[in-house]
């Protein structure tokens, strides 16, 4: 794939890529992810799993929102326009899109898959509610895009944007929704899952356990399910209904 744009988005980088041979991008389900090979890195070895932020079918471009967390993602964030990236996609199962009153909750760079998810709801005539949480205002990204596709509420830990605190404290976190769909840091997702149970609302979470292959072969990224079995996040997830998990 060819990088056609690398834009700063909050404290993240938004990479826009298109197939180098001009082929049409495959059909992708929101919540699926891509395994991106890190070019020219001295210290990294494995691909980096990055969630699908958006698919722009008019431009035939795929958006990847990337947070610099280590050498691999730093290298991806430094990619220049015109560079080629080797990407395997789409992987994993994805979010469901059958809800009529969905609440989408994202934390940090976990907001990434929610943009494409919200757009898919829009195609069905559904305008979702979103709660976007971050440490600080700078960690929120693509605000304009999110506000186009849904009704957005914000929480920041330092109070620099929206209410001060965590996503679970948002006024939008109510039992009026028929499905909560969440992606973010593990402690946040567990707190959201617990609150969703209290409210009696179905809840899906998207996990990002450390992966090697992304294909269900290496069995490294496992999470324990409700029967005590280890299941691969890459191939059986990354999206799970919380009732399927041990938490």
């Amino acid at each position: 794939m060819t990088v056609v744009a690398n834009e700063a988005a909050g404290s993240y980088h938004l990479l826009k890529v298109t197939p180098a041979d001009g082929r049409q991008l495959p059909e992708m389900v929101p919540g699926q992810f891509a395994e991106v090979d890190v070019p020219d890195s001295k210290t990294t070895f494995l691909r980096r799993p990055i969630s699908i932020n958006n698919v722009d079918s008019a431009d035939n471009t795929l958006w990847l929102l990337i947070r610099k967390t280590g050498a691999g993602t730093a290298s991806l964030c430094a990619t220049e326009t015109g560079a080629k990236l080797n990407i395997v996609l789409p992987l994993g199962n994805g979010f469901s899109t059958a809800a009529t009153r969905p609440l989408l909750i994202g934390g940090g760079v976990g907001i990434a898959p929610l943009l494409y998810l919200a757009r898919k709801y829009n195609e069905k005539g559904v305008r979702p509610t979103l709660i976007l949480g971050a440490r600080s205002k700078g960690d929120l990204a693509l605000i304009e895009e999110f506000e186009t596709v849904g009704d957005v509420f914000y929480t920041t830990e330092d109070g620099s944007h929206g209410i001060k605190g965590f996503v679970t404290m948002s006024e939008a976190f109510t039992a009026e929704h028929d499905l909560i769909q969440c992606c973010g840091p593990m402690p946040m997702m567990k707190a959201v899952a617990e609150r969703a149970r209290q409210l009696g609302v179905e809840c899906e979470v998207s996990l990002e356990n450390m992966m090697a292959c992304g294909l269900g072969a290496c069995l490294c990224c496992v999470e324990q399910d409700n029967k005590g079995h280890n299941v691969c996040v890459c191939s059986e997830g990354p999206v799970f209904n919380i009732n399927r998990l041990s938490w």
Binding site: T43, T44, F45, L46, N209, M210, M211, A212, C218, L219, C220, C221, V222, E223, Q224, G228, H229, N230
Partner: peptide, 20 residues
């Protein structure tokens, strides 16, 4: 067999550790 608990993998220079 269920294997070992997560985390089971660590990327290392030009390789990886696994404990599946």
């Amino acid at each position: 067999r269920e294997g070992n608990p997560y985390p089971r993998m660590a990327e290392t220079p030009s390789g990886m550790l696994n404990a599946v």
